[in-house]
Design a protein around this nucleic acid. Structure first.
Lengths: 199, 199
DNA sequence: CAGATGTCTTGACAGTGTCAAGTTAAAATC
DNA sequence: GATTTTAACTTGACACTGTCAAGACATCTG
């Protein structure tokens, strides 16, 4: 059980001093997200993450197996929230332009997650939880672009996905001029309207 | 001067055994590209690159300062070849769909370069050579999309860039279904035609 | 209360990037 | 052509990394 304070060896100590952390898995993912936000996924150090969470250097390995395991957990969480955001956008507006805007907004608001999600060489691509969350996102996006579920591939879905993804990637990598960077959503809507003309 | 064989300490030895390599800078870049192609940019090891080129572990640092310096050289070379490819496509066809197709083709044919080029956190973003090559690419792309040179930002150019870049990124990261992956250029042309309607 | 289980720590290992100092070849200067 | 200078590497060291095995400890199960 999880308490704010707990008795160990006769003394009452705070949560952070406990031998058993309570929810270390959660804390490590949060620490990893912070670290990625600061210096990107490739600069991530398991030992730095452990220090940030106040545990020993080998603690992360126990929960995630290895570095890729930790990043996989981050990516899976990212894809779940991503699917949430896309579903919300579609259900509240029914407009696939809004789904595209939600795509771009997610990349901005959850930069760290986004940077990890589409970097398969850093992940365990066969992780069940990751696959499940990926599928959720894919289906939410597919629905949001009005694609036919059974089709081999849908030009419209492919176009919308490429457009939103490219815009998001270029934006967060800092490739766009200031005018675009300052008002990304407006810029994206202009781009989307100019290309994916509503039928 | 550079010979295939050279006399050192009284004995004729082959190029690979020479103290002075001849063109180690070139060899290191090539080795880095190979290594990136095999395992991605984040798995790159300077020592492995040095071993591949047959030199000591600290040799790369002498030419490139640090790891980011080596990757910056790879990125700069990538942007130069990228600009070449885009210029060729535009000048030979005058069709901006062809420029987009060249964008995608470059990502496929020069996957290693491409993976490094748009990863600023791995590079020295202020490197003069990188900036020059980046500008070349940007201008070639801009011209290829028929954008107005002086404009603050051009919706058409932004759209074309996002579409091509997103398609390329998703493709090389393995996010597309087999039908698309097997015939990427055809798929991209279909996508481009469906969205960026020729005027 | 005892045993089993899961959580985390400790210590070790090989591998990493980077730096300073040394060695050697080539180029510059005389 | 000899000597000095410069540039191209090597060698050795350091702190840091991910991963593994073994141990310590708390909690759960009976």
């Amino acid at each position: 059980m999880v308490f704010d304070t707990v008795k160990i060896r006769g003394t009452v100590v705070t949560v952070t001093d406990r031998y058993h952390h309570g929810d270390l898995r959660r804390a490590l993912i949060d620490a990893a997200v912070e670290a990625v936000a600061e210096a990107g996924p490739s600069a991530l150090s398991l030992r730095a993450v452990a220090k940030r969470a106040g545990v020993s250097h080998a603690a992360p390995a126990h929960h995630f197996g290895d570095k890729a395991g930790l990043l996989t957990a981050v990516a899976a969480e990212g894809f779940d929230r991503f699917a949430d955001a896309l579903e919300r956008a579609w259900e509240s507006t029914g407009d696939f332009h809004a789904v595209g805007a939600a795509y771009v907004r997610f990349a901005i608001d959850h930069k760290a997650h986004f940077e990890v999600m589409f970097r398969p060489e850093l992940l365990h691509a066969d992780d069940p939880d990751l696959l499940r969350a990926e599928t959720r996102s894919r289906e939410a996006l597919h629905r949001g672009t009005g694609a036919v579920p059974g089709a081999v591939f849908n030009v419209r879905a492919l176009a919308a996905w490429s457009l939103a993804h490219g815009f998001a990637e270029l934006l967060i990598a800092g490739n766009f001029p200031p005018g675009v960077t300052e008002h990304p959503e407006e810029a994206f809507k202009a781009v989307a309207t100019a290309t994916l003309l509503g039928e």
